[in-house]
Amino acid sequence: MIELKQLRYLLAAADAGSFSRAARLLNIKQATLSRQIGHIEKRLGMHLFDRSLRGAKLTEHGEFYIRSVERLVTEFDELNSWVRATCCGTTGHLTVGFHTSFSAGNLRATVTEFGDKHPDVKMRGVERERKRLLGGLENRTLDLAVMAGEIFYAGLRARPFWSERILVALPEQHDLAVRERITWPDLAGEHFLLAAHETGPENAQILYGKLANSGVRPTIDVEEICRDSLLSVVSLGKHISIVTETAVGFHYPGIIFREIHENGGQVWLGFSGYWHEENDNPVLKRFLDFVEARYSLPPVNGCPRSRGFTRDAQT
């Protein structure tokens, strides 16, 4: 049987035009090279080289044979490169579901930077409501879901990714628009409009919790509209809303954004990544490592497990 290593010796000798020169390039003895090429010729039953004091020249049969060898070795090397890249996650597919805006902010920046660093990875983004994201993780049509808040769901692992500031969106004619900082008590008695998608449900929970002690239960309308439509309605002056800082990246006519403060600091909403515990996609592991490094997070490996859900420590 002719081995791949012997074929590489054959290619080196053909390129060098000399057994001695090829042996030096391969850092082996000339006798070893000659013996291996002789083994190939014996197995084939033909001479591949005309040997002389001036070197070694391919015979007619050798010219024909070497073309096939070049193609075979090249394809083998390409196959090995593909296997290594696939196993280490530098090529392949990654499907990311999200329940937040992709128009700006950390999600867009993270996915864009990862794609720039790994151009051979085909990434697909899917925007869905929370229940459908969880279903996609379970049936493995999604590799990863990025959602706000904490979710406990059997069979999933998770880790915190990043946090974004919570802002209040006000019509520019609103009395609070003149303030640079707004606190939760300032929002008591207001009429809120939230989107059913993105972070609307989480924001509703925050509002009920933060305004519970004001003595006035907040009025909250949750509509099936996108953020652009929501802010267009807010600009009419009958509602206000709360959004994450991704909204600040765009200009919305008639809208003023203000930070919400409590205890002397800004208010933040945490986002986490969720994936199925049996998902062995190497690209997913590489993406999680990338997020870990980008946001200086603790490593994913070695996380404790609870109720089928794994939660890393928040930094």
Rank of each mutant, 00 (worst) to 15 (best):
P119I: 07
L44K: 08
P298H: 09
G264T: 04
E245F: 03
R294S: 07
I256Y: 02
K210T: 00
G135P: 00
L11G: 01
K117F: 04
V267C: 10
T91D: 13
R43K: 14
V83N: 11
N279S: 10
T110I: 12
E292D: 12
L11W: 00
I240E: 01
F64C: 12
R108I: 07
A22V: 05
Y9S: 03
E63G: 03
V233H: 01
A104H: 11
N106F: 10
G89F: 02
G302D: 12
Q30G: 08
T219A: 06
A22L: 04
E41T: 08
D186F: 02
P119C: 08
T110P: 05
L137Q: 05
T219W: 00
Y274R: 04
L236M: 11
I2P: 06
L167C: 12
R165V: 10
H251S: 15
R181A: 15
F98M: 14
F271A: 06
Q266D: 12
D50E: 14
A204H: 09
L176R: 10
Y295E: 08
E277N: 07
V121L: 11
L137P: 05
H239L: 00
V178H: 13
Y295M: 08
L11K: 01
N106L: 10
D116L: 11
R51F: 06
L269H: 12
V248N: 09
W268A: 08
E172T: 06
H93Q: 15
R8Y: 00
P171D: 12
I66G: 02
V73S: 01
F76L: 08
Y274W: 12
G62D: 04
R67H: 13
G200C: 01
N139F: 10
Y252Q: 05
I255T: 04
R8F: 00
R8Q: 07
A22K: 03
G149N: 11
A188E: 11
R124H: 14
V222F: 00
K42G: 14
S34K: 10
G264E: 07
E278T: 14
I37E: 00
G215D: 04
A23R: 01
H276Q: 07
D116W: 08
F152C: 13
G302T: 14
P185M: 09
V96Q: 11
N279V: 06
V96D: 09
A247N: 04
S296Y: 14
M147N: 02
C88L: 15
F49P: 01
A204S: 08
H174G: 07
K5G: 06
L230E: 01
G237V: 06
E129I: 02
G115N: 12
L194T: 00
D186E: 07
R43P: 01
R67I: 13
H118M: 09
S296W: 15
F98T: 06
K285L: 10
I2E: 12
V243F: 03
G89S: 06
V283T: 11
V69Y: 02
G264L: 04
Y208I: 04
T244W: 00
I220G: 02
L48E: 05
A158E: 07
Y252I: 01
L288N: 00
F287M: 07
N106S: 13
I37C: 03
N203H: 14
G273N: 10
D228K: 09
H118E: 06
R51C: 04
